[in-house]
Each structure stands twice: as structure tokens, then as C-alpha cells.
Design a binder for these strands. Sequence first.
DNA 1: AATACGGGGCG
DNA 2: CGCCCAGTATT
Length: 300
Amino acid sequence: MGAGIAGALVGVVVGWYDEHARDLPWRAHDRTPWGVLVSEVMLQQTPVVRVEPAWRAWLERWPTPADLAAASSADVLRAWDRLGYPRRALRLQECARALVERHGGAVPDDEAALLALPGIGSYTAAAVRAFAFGRRAVVLDTNVRRVLARAVDGHALPAPSQTVAEVARAAAVVPPDDASAARWAQASMELGAVVCTARSPRCGACPLVSSCAWVAAGRPGDVHAHRRRTQGWAGTDRQVRGRLMALLRDAPAPVPEPALDDAWPATEQRARALAGLLADGLARELPSADDAPPSYALPS
DNA sequence: AATACGGGGCG
DNA sequence: CGCCCAGTATT
């Protein structure tokens, strides 16, 4: 793919974005880098529609890293509610504390400094750089991966796992200057999120339809379909952990062990899930009187 | 390179 | 009921 092709791709997608961008609160003019960072962590595997109200409440309650750093973990986990993967909430608070300790309570715009923060991986570090600071970054999420897989490679979906070569190819598409790179990041993600979707892409509304390699090939099926695995849910340890977490979240006081026992019938699996929560710092065991069963609560 | 890790909603 | 969602940390 030559620079000309990449340039045309970027121009078309950015032009489309200028007309069709969703009005999301973390894109508002008065957004802060902290607000952007919070949105990105919440959006790690949680859809926009569920993040939006949680993000508003979160930023109203903890408008700065220092505010979140000073909160109790129990409050943080309750505010996280059912966004899923509650370890993210704990890491976000650890991140806030690291920002206070290492960066004077501010979000850094340096790639290495961002990557060193808890819960911030390569995607989120790049997203914060681009969206909060307007800096050049290779923002490669599931949406951008899919857009490039289709438009450039002619594949229905990207490979199950991201490869070094794929990152290099994505980097080659990113314009050299900060402002254009940041706009491409925003625009390519948006296109994947609202038009070039995984399930039923709206090719009729896509600005790339006339140049898309996948459309040109007749929209062939997913070549990786045979080796994609489905992460189970019903009856898994993760469902049990979720049950126990919901109990602890919603309880006004420490929950006695017998109450947890009622949450899941399989003793061994329940014990394994509880041990996992304790190990992850999502729950704590309270001291109890002799001969009394222990109680459990969210961490303080 | 694989796995664990929530929870909900849609086709 | 399988699949997908602005991924990260660990093995």
C-alpha cells in the first residue's frame, strides 16, 4: 500500500467523521485528560451506551485524579456497578494514585509514562495521547483493526490476535503530524463503531464502499471463523465471581458466609471464585468471633 | 501465543 | 444462544 492510497483512505474517513461524529460527553469541548482516561478505561470491553451514564456520574463525583485517589475502594467498586471486569475499577483508582504520586495529579502525555500506569495498555495509552492531547499515536482497537482488515486486506474480520506486522501496517497509515493523526484515530474508530460493524456492516452508508477491498471481493466470509473460540458464560467461574461481587456490592453490611453459600450451589466452584476475589483485592474477609463463620465485604 | 476476566443486548 | 463490545495482565 503506497502513501497515496493511505492518504486517500485517511482523507475520506476523516471527512466522513467531520459530518457524522457522535456527540459523546468525553468528546465535549470542556473535557479533561482525566475524563478521557476514565472513558477509555470504562470502554475497555464495555459498550458506549452502558458507559455513558456511568462516566457522567463518575466524573461528577471524582472530577480529578486526586479525588478518586482519596476515595474508598468500596465506594469505587459500587460506583463501577455492573460495567463488568471490576478489576478495572481497582486499577483505575491505582492509576489515580500513581498520577498523584508521580505526576502531580495530572495525566501525562508521554507514551512511556502512560504505559507505566496501572490498567493502561498499548491501546489506552495511544488513545489518551490522541484524544486528550491531540498527539500522534497508533490507536489500534477492535474497530480500527476491522476497518483496515476490510478496506485494505479484503478480509471480513481481523485475525483473532494482533500481530507485530499488523501494528506496523496500522502505523504506516497514520499521518505524520499530530493533528491529522489524532483525527484519523478518532475517525477510524468511529467508522468501525457505527458503520463498519462486526455483525451487520452498513456498507451503503460507508464512505469507503467504492474503494473497499472486502466489498470488491464480494464480502467473503471470515477466514478465521474455524478457530475463533467463544468465551463461555453460564456456569463459569466468571459468572460465580460476578454473583458474589453483586452480593457484596449491594450489601449495606458485611455478608456472612452462609449468605454467600446461597448465591451458588456448587461448593468447590464457589470457594474458588471467592478465593479469586480475595486474591484480586476485590473482597476482604472480616474477623469473626470464635465458632462463627467469617463475613466478607468489599475492600476498604 | 493463549487465558482469565463481567455483563448485557442483539440477530 | 452464540457473538460482540474503544483491552489488560499474566502465564
